[in-house]
């Protein structure tokens, strides 16, 4: 299984791509509160990207809850 470090790196990559940012522009703990470009529309793009990248389908509650890298990691590791 992927180690935390590799998974964290992958999630950061997806977040950066979805929000149209470079990875090094992301703070250590990216979230809807700390990243300016994380609009509600960008959030949907992010959700769709995550579904594609990790081959999962989120429930409505999960979709709403994926508001930070930490939360995304939590949801993904529950699915692993």
């Amino acid at each position: 299984m992927r180690s935390d470090a590799a998974l964290v790196a992958q999630v950061r990559t997806v977040i950066a791509e979805s929000l149209d940012l470079d990875e090094d522009q992301l703070p250590d703990e990216p979230s809807q509160d700390t990243v300016a470009g994380w609009s509600s529309l960008a959030h949907l793009v992010l959700v769709l990207n995550l579904e594609e990248r990790f081959g999962v389908s989120f429930s409505m509650d999960e979709m709403v809850a994926l508001t930070s890298a930490r939360r995304i990691l939590e949801v993904l590791s529950r699915r692993a």
Partner: peptide
């Protein structure tokens, strides 16, 4: 896509 409608008010699937 009921999820898209409820979460984002989008009436159609992709």
């Amino acid at each position: 896509d009921p999820r898209l409608w409820l979460v984002a008010g989008m009436p159609w699937s992709d």
